[in-house]
Design a protein around this nucleic acid. Structure first.
Lengths: 342, 342
DNA sequence: TGAATGAGTTTAATCGATTAAACAATAATT
DNA sequence: AATTATTGTTTAATCGATTAAACTCATTCA
C-alpha cells in the first residue's frame, strides 16, 4: 500500500538508471545531464513524493548529519535553553540533534556516548559528568569530533566552550563586598567538576584579596542525596552560626531555587538579613520578592559557538578551540547596598 | 588508523562467515551453533571492540529505534520536563529521541516532520501546532505511528494524551468562586488550539453554572506578537475596568510568568486585590511571594503513556488510544478565601 | 547400503542510496 | 577518414548489516 518510493522507482518510471536519478536529485554533473531528462526526473520525483532515505545515504556516505547532545538533565532550564540554541544553530546546517541526560552519572554518560556512537552521530556536544575523563579521552583517541560545554577537564586538550567561572564568582563576591557585606557564604556541590572548583576558587580569592578572613564553615558543599534537604540544612547552618553570614552565593540555579523557597517559608528578609547572588538565570529569579542579582551566562553565544566549533571539527579541522566566556553580573534588589537598607 | 570494526573483520579473524557472526552476536539460532565457535566469535568481538553499525542494521531491518519529538519549544519547562520523561521511558525500550521545536508554526512543524520521516524515525510524539491538521492526517494516511500530546484535533481520530482541559479550567474557576471571588477574568491566547478552546469553554461554563454573568471583556485572548507586552496590557485593562476583576485565571505558565512579573512591579497585592490561578507548573510559582494556586498536569503519566502508546503503535497495534488525564488543583496562597483576608 | 535426519555453517540476495569508471553516440579536429 | 573530445548515460561495486535458503558432513534408521 504505502511502500516508500525509492530511486529505483523513479528510475523505472522515467526509464533511466538510478545513477542518473541520483545525480539529478543531488545536482551533480549538472553540465553533463540532458536538461529535459533532468526535468522529467525531477517532476517524477515530486509526483511520486520521493524522499531520500537518509539511512541509506548515511550508510554510503558515512555522514548522518546528526549531533549528539549530552547534558546533565534536559529538564533543567539551563540545559534546555542551551539545547534550543544548539537545535537552532544545528538546523542552519541541516543537522538534527539527538539528546540524552546523564544525571551527572559517569555510567549513564558512558552508555549515552556508546549509543550515540553506534548511531554514528557526526559529533557530540557534551556537558561532561564527573569522572568521565577517560570517556572523553577515548573519544579523542577515536578521532570523534566533540565539544565540551559548560564544564571541561583542564588537563585535557579538548575543544570546550564554558564560562570563566573563576572570574564570575570573583566578580559576584567582589560585588557583595563592595556593597558592604562582610560575612559571605557559598553553597555549592561537593564535586570535582572543574567549573564548580573554579567557582569555589573565585569565591575564596575574592574574600582573600579583600582581606576578609574566610571561615571554613562559610562554604557548604552538598554531597549526593536529595538537594532540597541539603540546601535547607546548609542554609540553616549558615544562618545560625554565632556570627551568621550576611550574604550568600548560590552556585547554581537549582541550589538557588531550593534556597529561595526555604528563605520564603522561613520568612528571612532579603537583602536586609541576607543578601543573595546566584549563578545562572531562571524566570523564577524575577518572581522572588527581591529580584535576584545573578550571574548571567551568555547561553546564546555558548550554544552557537559550541555548535560551530563542532561542525568545523566535523569538517576535518583539527585545531583545538577552547573558549571561556565572561558572565554578566545582573545587579538587582537582592544585593542592595548594606548601609542604605530599604 | 581507526577504521571501524565490522562483522567482516570479526568473521575474517575467526575464520567464519559474517552470517555466523551476525547470528551469534544477535543470539539467534542458539541451538544450532557450536558453542565453542560462538564463544570465539564473542571473544573476538570484544577484543576488537566491535560495535554494531546501527545505520546498516536500520537499512536492512527498516527500524531505527528512534522517536521524533516535536514540541512548541524545548526550552519551555513544560516541554523540557515532558522531554525528559519521554527520554527515560523511551530508553527503557532502547529508543533514542530526536527533538525539534516548532515554535507553534505550521511551516516549521511541517519541515520537522519531513526531516524526521526522511531519517526514518519509527514514530513521532507531537504537540501539534495550530493549523497542522493536514500534516497530522497525512501522517495517518502514510501509516506512520504517532501520538499527539498536550493538544489534539477533536475531529481527527488519532492517538492522543492530553489534559482534560475543560474540566481543569472549570475546576479552577469553581474554586475561585467557592473562595468568594466573583469577577473572574482569564488571560489566554487567541488560538484555535483545542486545549486552549477547552480551557476557555471550561472557564465560561463555570461562570455560567454559578450564575455569574460573564462580562465580555473579562476574557483576554493574546494575539501574536510579543507576549510580554500583551500580557501587561491585558492585565492592566482587566484591573482598570469600572468594576475590576478580583481574580484571574492564566492559561499557561508563560502567561503567568509575565503576569506575575508585572504584578510584582506594579505592587498589586495577591490575593487581596487579585486572586490568581494558573495552568501548568513551574518552580517560579513557588517563589512568588504568594505561592500560586495552579493546575498541575500529570506530566509523568502523560509522557509515559504517550511513549508507551507510541511504542505499541509501532508494534503494529492499530487501535487508537485517546487519553484525557485530570489535572490536579494545587491550592495555595494566591487564592486565599476572599472573606478572611490576611 | 542407501536414504533420511540433523547439526553446523556458508551463500548470496537485499535494504537504498552513492559514485568511480566504463561505455555509446555524436561532434570536433587534423 | 581516422582520431580525439565531448556529451549523456549506464554498469557495477560499495557501505555493513540481516536472513532465507542452500549446502556439507556426520549420524541414524530401515
Amino acid at each position: 500500500m504505502n511502500k516508500r518510493v525509492s530511486l529505483k522507482d523513479i528510475a523505472q518510471k522515467v526509464g533511466v538508471s538510478t545513477a542518473l536519478v541520483s545525480y539529478v536529485l543531488n545536482n551533480q554533473k549538472q553540465d553533463r545531464i540532458n536538461k529535459e531528462v533532468a526535468q522529467r526526473i525531477r517532476n517524477t520525483a515530486k509526483e511520486l513524493n520521493y524522499r531520500t532515505n537518509l539511512i541509506a545515504r548515511s550508510l554510503k556516505t558515512n555522514k548522518t548529519f546528526t549531533i549528539g547532545l549530552i547534558v546533565a538533565d534536559i529538564s533543567n532550564p539551563y540545559f534546555s535553553s542551551l539545547a534550543r540554541i544548539i537545535e537552532d544553530e544545528a538546523d542552519k546546517y541541516n543537522y538534527t540533534v539527538v539528546f540524552g541526560s546523564s544525571d551527572e552519572d559517569a555510567q549513564k554518560s558512558g552508555k549515552l556516548i556508546d549509543v550515540f556512537l553506534n548511531r554514528h552521530v557526526d559529533g557530540l556536544i557534551i556537558a561532561p559528568a564527573q569522572a568521565t575523563t577517560e570517556q572523553i579521552l577515548s573519544l579523542q583517541q577515536q578521532d570523534i569530533p566533540f565539544v565540551l560545554i559548560d564544564r571541561y577537564f583542564p588537563n585535557c586538550k579538548t575543544n570546550h566552550v564554558a564560562l570563566d567561572d573563576y572570574k564570575a564568582a570573583y566578580t559576584a563576591v567582589k560585588h557583595l563586598i563592595d556593597r558592604g557585606y562582610k560575612r559571605i557564604g557559598m553553597i555549592s556541590y561537593d564535586s570535582q567538576l572543574f567549573n564548580l572548583q573554579e567557582r569555589k576558587r573565585g569565591y575564596l580569592a575574592a574574600l582573600k584579596d579583600n582581606t576578609i578572613p574566610h571561615k571554613k564553615n562559610w562554604l557548604r558543599e552538598l554531597g549526593s542525596g536529595p538537594v532540597r534537604q541539603a540546601v535547607e540544612k546548609s542554609l540553616q547552618e549558615l544562618l545560625s552560626l554565632t556570627q551568621p553570614v550576611d550574604a550568600i552565593l548560590f552556585a547554581s540555579n537549582t541550589i538557588a531555587l531550593h534556597g529561595l523557597k526555604h528563605i520564603n517559608t522561613m520568612g528571612i528578609r532579603v537583602p536586609e538579613e541576607l543578601a543573595i547572588v546566584s549563578f545562572d538565570e531562571t524566570e523564577a529569579f524575577d518572581l522572588f520578592y527581591a529580584p535576584l542579582t545573578y550571574i548571567k551566562q551568555p547561553l546564546l553565544e555558548m550554544g552557537q559557538m559550541a555548535t560551530r566549533i563542532l561542525l568545523e571539527s566535523i569538517g576535518r579541522n583539527n585545531k583545538i578551540t577552547q573558549v571561556n566566556l565572561e558572565g554578566e553580573l545582573i545587579i538587582r534588589q537582592s544585593t542592595t547596598p548594606k548601609t542604605k537598607k530599604r
